[in-house]
């Protein structure tokens, strides 16, 4: 999207339970943001506009454990538009038990700066 294209978006603010509906019009270069009721809401809207970030949680295939998959989580938020690439990489991975919670499964996934770590320990199955 170039900086001049007209925006017409509405997002729901998740900063607090009030759940303000925030309208974003104007352009990427000069957005007009309305509908927020606090400073944090405005900041949230800007983040959502320029670089929305999300935590990434999923599972990876694991061998030799009681279960077939093991939960993983990103160490920090990753850009929303890189989620798909990240997930594809996660789906390709296969680990082997035992795994400790916090073990790095993928370092710096898709150059996001976030690591994917084991979200729980998994023992070897008897």
């Amino acid at each position: 999207m170039n900086g001049k294209e007209q925006l017409d978006r509405e997002i729901t603010c998740i900063v607090c339970p009030t759940s303000c509906r925030i309208q974003i019009t104007g352009t990427m270069d000069e957005p007009e943001i309305t509908g927020y009721t606090c400073k944090r809401g405005l900041e949230h809207a800007r983040n959502e506009l320029y670089c929305p970030m999300r935590m990434l949680t999923s599972t990876v295939k694991i061998l030799g454990a009681k279960f077939r998959v093991m939960p993983v989580i990103s160490t920090k938020e990753v850009p929303k538009d890189k989620m798909k690439d990240c997930l594809e990489e996660i789906y390709r991975i296969q680990v082997t038990a035992p795994v400790q919670e916090g073990d790095i499964i993928i370092r710096d996934i898709c150059h996001t700066g976030a690591d994917i770590v084991a979200a729980r320990s998994m023992k070897e199955a008897q």
Binding site: T57, E101, A119, R120
Partner: peptide
């Protein structure tokens, strides 16, 4: 912190 269920449990 934003933890997953497993992390919280652990």
């Amino acid at each position: 912190k934003r933890m997953s269920g497993g992390q919280y449990a652990e």
